[in-house]
Computed example of a mutant assay.
Amino acid sequence: MRAWHRKLILLLALLAFGPGAPAAANAWDLPPLVLPDLQGRRHSLYDWHGKVILLNFWASWCGPCLTELPHLAEFQRRYGSRGLQVIGVGLDNPRKLANVARTLEIPYPVLHSPVEQATALLQQWGDRAGVLPYTVVIGRDGRLVFSRVGVFDEEAFAAIVAPLLEP
């Protein structure tokens, strides 16, 4: 796909789902998400209310996921102080997820879901095909802003997330 095609698609998505447009969900009227992190502590998505949340579903066996994770880590490092919270949801064995998180020095929370619940969880969040990686962006007000199957790259971040971090 040509670069200008991708930019046009991202711009149209931002216009359709971005700030000021009708939101896909009411504030904090999102699917439930209460999962343990890699240390066993349970978290609710609401733990991060008031932040722009980039919720990323991934697995250790997913090649595109492993390509994407360093970018997400860099987004968290660069924009965390501006209100960004990346949250990983690993759909895999916690030991394998922890190994990837440690190796890549992931600086954001990684939650995990039992593999047998992965398909249902992805479908709840709008990924009907169950394809990974899958990313959801939630605004500071708890509204679903955008979702995407595939690698969430710098271009997508600039078009979708960066405007939400503006004061």
Rank of each mutant, 00 (worst) to 15 (best):
V115R: 14
Q85I: 07
R78Q: 11
W58E: 07
Y108I: 04
V89E: 10
A129T: 13
S60F: 01
V86F: 12
R102D: 13
H71W: 15
L144E: 01
V131N: 11
L132W: 14
G142F: 11
E68M: 00
L72E: 12
P94Q: 09
G126T: 10
S60G: 08
D127R: 03
F75T: 05
L97Y: 13
I138W: 09
F57V: 01
A98F: 05
D141A: 15
P94L: 04
R102W: 07
V137K: 10
G88I: 06
T119Q: 12
V115L: 05
L111C: 12
H71L: 09
N93W: 12
N93M: 12
R102Y: 15
I106W: 06
Y79T: 14
F75L: 02
V131Q: 15
G83N: 07
E105M: 10
V136Q: 05
L69F: 09
Q124H: 15
P94Y: 05
K96P: 05
R95S: 13
I87R: 03
L122R: 04
A101T: 11
F75G: 03
S60K: 03
A120Q: 11
F75V: 01
G130S: 09
P94G: 08
L91A: 09
R82K: 13
G83E: 08
F146S: 00
L144T: 05
A73I: 06
L91M: 08
A73G: 02
A120H: 11
T103W: 14
V136N: 02
A118C: 08
L84K: 13
D92S: 08
W125G: 00
R77M: 02
N93S: 13
F75N: 00
V86L: 12
T103E: 15
Q123T: 10
L111F: 05
W125S: 04
W58Y: 08
V86N: 14
E74F: 02
N99A: 11
I138F: 05
H71V: 12
R82A: 13
G83R: 07
W125K: 07
W125D: 04
L111D: 02
P107Q: 15
V89M: 04
A98S: 09
T135S: 15
C62D: 12
A59G: 10
T67V: 14
G139K: 01
L144Y: 09
P70W: 11
D127Q: 10
L121N: 03
G80T: 05
V131T: 14
Y108W: 03
P70E: 07
R95P: 00
H112I: 00
Q117N: 07
Q76S: 04
P109I: 09
S113F: 00
G126S: 02
G130T: 05
G88N: 14
W58V: 01
V136L: 02
L84E: 06
W125A: 00
L144P: 04
F146K: 00
